[in-house]
Design a protein around this nucleic acid. Structure first.
Length: 554
RNA sequence: GCGCCUGUAGCUCAGUAGGACAGAGCAACUGCCUUCUAAGCAGUGGGUCAGGGGUUCGAAUCCCUUCAGGCGCGCCA
């Protein structure tokens, strides 16, 4: 019984498996199926014959031959070749390609999406920037990736929740409050020392201004400790609402916002530590309280309560991840800046300490973003508060372009983001290349309607009229989408979709340029419109996953 | 010193559970708009896959090593 989705690769794999079974081969190895490097090598190929040489003690080409001969039903193939040291190259028949394309047009996303997740619950935590300053470009990278990944996993049948963890407790927000307090005092003419490690950005002064606007000199004679709650809360709430605004401008939404402070207030932190204590994983040393993370492979044990009685940041993170893991998510994904990589072992230790396999937590590290302007690095300093924000970049470069740049790189490669280049290229930017393909197709459909052509039921068109090499190439590429999709899901790498879309667009534009979709030949026009329809379905699906808009006109 | 990431065309980057003569975009040069959108198309040039060993029928991909860049190694977050 065919599933909703009939991924050509899956189908081929099944055929090969059946064939191996009919040859009485016991240990069937992992069957590698790949897109061959050259078109003359067919549509898909397998190296299975070569990997069987050692087991069967026969030359690979001989094995390949036997394998090919034992394939009973060859109707979906135009030909099967054995090439080189033992590659088996499969070329699909046109009839098969047409039938698959018809399914694509009828079933749309159901054809394109693979149900990998089967309803599993996944939580993706990303961005989680401290609410002590505006989002910068590095956060943007994590945001673009996190959003695309959640779209991707949702499309793959996972139940995904996107969460932002707000570090609204502890030293950093206190320092923020103190920085604003100092600026407020200075604003009112009082010589108040600015904290050594304080936040020096302009936005601190703006918050101080706002407080003066609303409250006048009310806090002029106060000491910070008396009014710290007000200054801290006012400051971080202001910044958090700006973060939310920036994310919304960037086109990214979160489902839940977890406050660190809540973890303390509701007693989660104490309960978590108690939980570890019951397992004998907590001990006192040198006046501090430690978690025995070395029991789970960490380099050293970690302090959770300092000598002065304060909790460390790690404490709330223990509680936070305990809470997440107990919420019965099947999988947790954290997206972090790569500078936190040293933190992974201790958090994995936490997961294990609470009795879950460490695999349950997958940490994706996003490497640093170097911001350039015209080839020169832009100086960024948290100390002086001198940095370029995400908002400035998307205002200057555009959200779609910015996301696309982030999503054309692997997360573990360092990224150079040159604002000038991003802007200068904007007219010939790859993102527009893909969007433009969609816009052009849209325009073709408008034209078709003007000419009174039926654009309904295009799956009934006579696909045999799509016999140009360019057309077959496009159809084959379209049918590879599920394979790319599945790969992106398994590796958590949305950038695979980005590259695929560029390649697909790269087949459409030359075709568009060389041939006309709409002509006096009505049957041919309908067939070509069907091809355009299939293209449009795939382009939109892919762009939607990436979180990039699909303008109808450009 | 130890650990993690990276090193592929002039630039920015894909390609790594090993597979066939290594790819794209940008930049450079030459052409194409009375025809569904020129944010497009056609063509040209461009590489010791950082260096060196090793494993393998086969290595950009795996192992070792050297070099280079980035980031970590707190009772900071």
């Amino acid at each position: 019984m065919p599933t909703l989705n009939s991924d050509v690769k899956k189908e081929l794999r099944k055929i090969i498996e059946d064939s191996l079974r009919s040859l009485d081969i016991e240990a069937i190895p992992a069957i590698e199926i790949e897109v061959p490097p050259r078109e003359s090598f067919g549509d898909l190929s397998t190296t299975v014959a070569m990997s069987l040489t050692k087991i069967l003690k026969k030359p690979p080409r001989k094995i390949a031959e036997e394998l090919v001969n034992s394939i009973e039903d060859k109707t979906i193939f135009e030909k099967i070749d054995i090439a080189g040291p033992g590659f088996i190259n499969f070329t699909f028949s046109k009839e098969y390609l047409y039938a698959e394309m018809k399914k694509l047009i009828i079933e749309k996303e159901r054809f394109l999406r693979e149900d990998v997740g089967q309803g599993e619950k996944v939580q993706i935590e990303f961005i989680s920037a401290n609410p002590t300053g505006p989002l910068h470009l590095g956060h943007g990278r994590g945001a673009a990736l996190g959003a695309a990944l959640s779209n991707l996993l949702r499309a793959a049948g996972y139940q995904v929740e996107r969460e932002y963890y707000i570090n609204d407790a502890g030293k950093q927000v206190k320092l923020l409050g103190l920085s604003v307090f100092a600026r407020y005092q200075q604003l009112l003419g009082r010589a108040y020392p600015f904290p050594e490690e304080g936040y020096r950005g302009e936005y601190i002064k703006e918050i101080a201004h706002a407080i003066r606007e609303e409250n006048g000199e009310k806090y002029l004679t106060s000491e910070f400790d008396e009014v710290s709650d007000f200054f801290i809360d006012y400051s971080y709430e202001t910044i958090l609402s700006e973060i939310k605004r920036d994310l919304s401008e960037f086109g990214i939404t979160l489902d839940t916002w977890q406050s660190e402070r809540e973890m303390y207030r509701t007693g989660e932190v104490e309960r978590a530590i108690e939980g570890l204590r019951e397992k004998g994983l907590i001990y006192e040393k040198e006046g501090a309280t430690w978690f025995k993370s070395t029991a789970f492979g960490d380099d050293k044990d970690r302090v959770i309560i300092k000598q002065d009685g304060e909790y460390t940041y790690f404490s709330s993170d223990i509680a936070y991840h305990r809470k997440k893991v107990q919420k019965r998510y099947d999988e947790l994904i954290d997206i972090w800046g790569a500078d936190h990589h040293g933190y992974i072992p201790r958090l994995k230790a936490v997961i294990e300490a609470f009795g879950y396999p460490e695999k349950k937590l997958k940490v994706i590290l996003v490497q640093m973003v170097t911001l350039l302007r015209g080839g020169k690095p832009v100086q960024m300093s948290k100390r002086t508060g001198d940095f370029v924000t995400l908002k400035e970049v998307i205002d200057e470069v555009g959200s779609d372009t910015t996301k696309f740049i982030f999503l054309t790189r692997r997360s573990d490669s360092h990224l150079e983001f040159d604002i000038e280049v991003a802007k200068a290229q904007s007219s010939e930017n790859p993102v527009f290349y893909v969007q433009y393909a969609n816009a052009r197709i849209n325009s073709i459909f408008n034209h078709a309607k003007e000419k009174g052509l039926h654009t309904e039921r295009l799956f009934d068109a006579d696909f045999r009229l799509l016999s140009l090499s360019e057309e077959l190439r496009i159809i084959k590429k379209l049918l590879l989408y599920p394979m790319i999709f599945e790969g992106a899901v398994h590796t958590c790498e949305p950038h695979r979709i980005t590259f695929y879309l560029q390649e697909l667009s790269g087949l459409f534009h030359p075709y568009y340029n060389k041939y006309r979709v709409i002509s006096d030949d009505i049957e041919q026009s309908r067939a070509r419109l069907a091809l355009c329809e299939a293209l449009r379905i795939v382009l939109r699906e892919g762009l939607e996953i990436l979180g990039i808009s699909t303008p109808e006109k450009m």
